[in-house]
Amino acid sequence: METAVAVRGRGITKVFDDIVALDHVDVSMSRGQIHGLVGPNGAGKTTLLGLLLGLAVADKGSLEILGTPVGRALAAPDGVSGFVDGPGLYPTLTAKQNLTALLELRPGDGHTATADEALEQVGLGHVADDKVRGFSLGMRQRLGLAAALLTRPRLLVLDEPSNGLDPAGKKLVYGVLRRLAADGVTVVLSSHRMDDLESLCSEITILASGRVMFSGPLSKLSSDDRELDYRLRTSDPIAARAVAAETPGVVVVDGPEAPVSPDGDIVVVRARVAALDTLVARVVRADIAVRELVPVVSPLEAAFLALTDTENSADSADAEDAEDTAIAANTANTEEETVR
């Protein structure tokens, strides 16, 4: 019977010499979901992705992938595909030769896609016979994805797949990933682009210094009520600024502290959601048209910054709040699994 959890790791620890890359990591990734892995440089993202791809084994802890416990042997578990640290391609071979070579390495894997089909899927059919040497970074990323798709994976692991992609390429790749998830494939990807992760992922794991700061549904993280900066564009910015200044719980951000230089018609305010609601109501009552109200940084990015700041300022009140949030989210996530 298929389990609902594609990846379940408990107490995973991985040490390189004297560097603890992963420190008792607990993580669960649901089947058929796009799971984002985010964290500062050196947080342990690539190490974790490497464990999923069978490139290394954990020093401690247990890891179960697609219902099968991962042993001590170094090998990619069946049904797992992807890349870490950039797609591995041979520049002296053509795009098609790269994929054909991969197909030949995996006979009897039940491939349903030919090299041509995979290339068409990622929009590279027209350069199938071109040497990869001349490809841009974005084209290489798409070719890497095509290579990963050849084996019809059930767990697709991608490290920074949107690196170098132009808007059209990104749209195409994200479309492919969404279709895969809809077909039941679990997609795990790391990225530094919070907006990308927000638009793509349903689950998020935030790592910092090898530890999990949060792991669970994105909705849980985004719904957390923390003070954020918002750009408020109105028909009368001077009046709107006055209203904001008088609204309890709202601070108008000015000067060098402002995250973006306010244009003439933009006011940057800092508030929690409840105070923001009050502000909007007051602005509207004052006959000022609200044309735009957006967070300066995405909720995910704000949560990320708050959670990862915990590492650097463990004694700050905000950090304590963030830790509480993470623990609560983890607990909720674990409970969900238990119910399943």
């Binding site: 389990t3 609902a4 979901q33 069946d78 049904g79 039940g110 059930r154």
Partner: peptide
């Protein structure tokens, strides 16, 4: 809420062993 996708189409059994590529092909 995390979705459950146990009914989603799956290519192969989850317990299938992972075989290395044949030496001749490598």
């Amino acid at each position: 809420m995390t979705a459950t996708v146990a009914e989603a189409p799956v290519a192969r059994s989850a317990t299938a062993a992972a075989f290395p590529a044949p030496l001749a092909r490598i």
